[in-house]
Design a protein around this nucleic acid. Structure first.
Length: 299
RNA sequence: GGUACCAUCGCCAAGCGGUAAGGCAAAGGUCUGCAAAACCUUUAUUCCCCGGUUCAAAUCCGGGUGGUACCU
């Protein structure tokens, strides 16, 4: 009998956090955040991180677990999440994964084989080689090693090519594993125009909540090379700080990038299997539907 | 009122007589370790309007219209 786990995913600004908490309260659950930015301490406003006062006493895992100067990857998420799930189940509670980083959720529930530790030396060597010799050279190199299998890799995508080389050179391959969990996945969605509008409104709210001073402080403390500084709502400040664009331009860019991001999230989620789509427009109706579905699934 | 310059996709923009680059946006998509990342596909039969020259005009000429700058 596989352990039962609930997941609530969806694009940015659909209202996952609130529904997650309501589900947790209704089913004696605890939440595991699947958010690639909220894992970082101090990146609060721009990541729309849920703050302790908003948690309503529901325990959250996966938030504020690494320093902004550290690295965090899908692998780290899966390790953390598996541990958290076990802990929650041991207490007889329901684990609920909530977050917009759908890859994290997919990797966890589909039990991706992510290999062991990344060989940072190898990664550095390959990165240097990519810079010096260019992508076509690297793609050619990968083709020689993998042969037919290289067709599955996007040879125009430098990140993919490098990772595939890393795996190939260290003698690993991607394998399919059976899931460890019986996972009920809900995807919150909304009409595109409504979602886009909600995103725009939320970005304005972030600024009203002091996003600029948060980012100024983080920039000073960690510098622009910190991993979370690549996030939307943070990276756009760089040209503004350097006087290369106006504040208004930057705000519009953050909105635009957030909209683009939401679209990519939706595309990714649509490609996932066994997902129960729920219209998040009306929170009460959405919750009722989710509650009913969970009851059925638990029985 | 005069003179000069400009007018090309929602925005920026190349082209300057040979049959509409590119970037951004938009839409769709990919995805097994940075995923709020990276990458892929599609998107102007038409260049402000009207006439003319030419085998051929977004490109040259004339006239409108609109904008910008300077002069009075």
């Amino acid at each position: 009998m596989k352990s039962k786990v609930v997941a609530i995913i969806g694009p940015t600004a659909v209202g996952k956090s609130k529904i997650g908490i309501d589900v947790a309260k209704a089913f004696n659950g605890e939440i595991i955040s699947a958010d690639s930015i909220a894992v970082f301490k101090e990146f609060n406003i721009g990541s729309a991180k849920i703050m302790p006062k908003q948690m309503q006493g529901v325990k959250h895992y996966g938030i504020d677990i690494v320093s902004p100067s550290e690295q965090f990857s899908t692998f780290d998420f899966v390790v953390m999440a598996k541990k958290a799930i076990k802990k929650i189940l041991d207490q007889g509670k329901l684990p609920i994964i909530v977050g917009g980083t759908a890859l994290y959720v997919k990797a966890l529930i589909e039990n991706y084989n992510l290999g062991g530790k990344v060989d940072m030396n190898l990664r550095e060597t390959l990165t240097k080689q990519l810079e010096e010799k260019g992508l076509p050279f690297m793609a050619e190199r990968l083709k020689k090693i993998l042969g037919e299998e290289s067709k599955e890799i996007d040879l125009k995508n430098p990140i993919r090519v490098l990772r595939a080389l890393e795996l190939a050179l260290s003698g690993q391959n991607k394998t399919k594993n059976e899931s460890e969990y019986d996972c009920k996945v809900f995807a919150l969605i909304k009409d595109r125009q409504t979602l886009y509008n909600d995103i725009n409104v939320r970005v304005d709210q972030m600024f009203a909540n002091g996003l600029e001073s948060e980012v100024r402080a983080l920039y000073k403390k960690y510098g622009e090379n910190a991993q979370p500084f690549k996030a939307i709502g943070y990276k756009e400040f760089l040209p503004y700080f350097k006087g290369r664009c106006t504040k208004g331009d930057m705000i519009n860019l953050i909105k635009q990038h957030s909209r683009n991001y939401a679209k990519r999230q939706i595309t990714f989620i649509k490609s996932m299997q066994n997902v129960c789509f729920v219209d998040g427009e009306n929170v009460e109706e959405a919750e009722q539907l989710i509650f009913e579905e969970i009851e059925k699934w638990k029985a």
